[in-house]
Simulated assay, not measured.
Amino acid sequence: MTTPRDLLIVTMDTAAGHPVEKGDLSLALAGAELIDLLGTRAVRLDGVLIVPDDDRPAPADRLMAEAASSVVQDEPYESVTDWLWRRGRGLSAVHEAALEEEGLLARQRRRGLSFTAGAPELVESPARRRAVDRWKSEDPVLANLAETVGVRGDRTGDTPDVADDAVATVLAAVSDAVVELASVRQRRAIDEAAFDNIWRGGV
C-alpha cells in the first residue's frame, strides 16, 4: 500500500457529508507521493529542492512509478512547492480512477430515464481495512495530510508531530499550497459575485 492510496481511501471513508475540495486533495496526494519517494530513498531533499537518486529501482506501484519518473532529473532541481502544483494537477481523479480499475471503488447504478453511474463508493477490501487501521493508529503522516484537506474523523486531540525534517518540509508545503488555493478560490468567488452584480444592475 502507498500513502496516496491510504489518504484517498481515508478521505472517502470519513468525509461523507463533508466533501473535500478536489484541488486540495490533489495537492495532498502529490505531497503523499513525494513522502513515499523520500521513504524509499528514490529522492532526497536538498533544502526545498527534490534531488533524484538514479540508482533506485522504479517502485512496484504503477502510480508511484509514474511519480518517480516525473521527478526533474537535472539541475536546477524542482522545489517541493513546484512539484505539488505540477504533479498535483488533476491528481485526485487519477488516483480515484486507479482505485476503480483495481475494484476498490464501485459506482452505484441509478434508475431514471436511463441507467446512469452514480458517485463512486468504496467497497470492502483488505486495502480499505489497512488504510482505516493506519488512520486509527494515528499515523503522523496520514493524520497531517488528512487534516490539511479538512478530514479529522473522530479525532479530537492534536495532530501527531512528524520527526523527519524532510517529511515535515513536505507537509508544511502542502499546507501552504492548500491555503493559497483557498485564497484563489475566494478571490474568484468575489470576482464572479461582482460580475453578477454588474449584470443585475443592468450595465
Rank of each mutant, 00 (worst) to 15 (best):
A106G: 03
D55G: 13
N144P: 11
R188T: 09
D165R: 12
D158T: 08
R130I: 02
F115K: 09
D61V: 03
S175C: 00
T14R: 15
G103S: 05
R130E: 14
L45K: 01
V72N: 04
T81E: 10
R5T: 12
D154Q: 10
R109T: 15
M1G: 09
L45C: 02
A173I: 00
D13S: 11
Q186Y: 09
A98V: 05
D191L: 02
T11E: 09
E96W: 06
S70K: 07
H95I: 05
H95S: 08
V71M: 03
A131H: 10
R110P: 00
L181C: 00
D24P: 10
D74W: 07
D55T: 09
E180T: 15
E33G: 03
T156G: 09
D196K: 13
L84W: 01
L91E: 08
A15S: 15
G31D: 01
L105I: 04
I35E: 06
V80R: 00
R89W: 10
S26W: 07
I190M: 12
V174H: 05
S114T: 13
L7H: 11
L84C: 03
L29G: 02
V149H: 12
S26F: 05
V10I: 12
P160I: 08
E180I: 02
V132G: 03
E180D: 14
V10R: 08
D36M: 04
E101L: 11
V162K: 01
V43S: 06
R41E: 13
L29A: 06
S70C: 07
A143Q: 11
T14M: 14
E21M: 04
A166F: 01
P57H: 03
E96A: 13
V72D: 03
E180R: 14
E124A: 11
R86E: 04
A168D: 13
R185S: 10
E101Y: 12
D6Q: 12
V178P: 04
D176K: 00
P126R: 08
E21W: 03
S137N: 07
D164C: 05
T14V: 02
P19E: 06
I35A: 03
R107H: 08
R44P: 00
D164N: 15
P76W: 10
A68D: 11
D165L: 06
E75Y: 10
P140R: 08
R185F: 13
R130V: 05
S125F: 08
A119T: 15
A194M: 14
A166K: 01
L99Q: 07
A60F: 07
V179N: 07
G103T: 04
G39L: 04
M12E: 07
S183H: 14
A93F: 11
G31I: 00
W83T: 01
R87S: 00
V94M: 05
W199I: 12
L171V: 09
L145I: 00
A60Q: 13
R110D: 08
V141Y: 11
D54N: 08
A182M: 05
D82E: 11
V178L: 10
R107M: 09
R187G: 02
T14P: 00
V162M: 11
E101V: 13
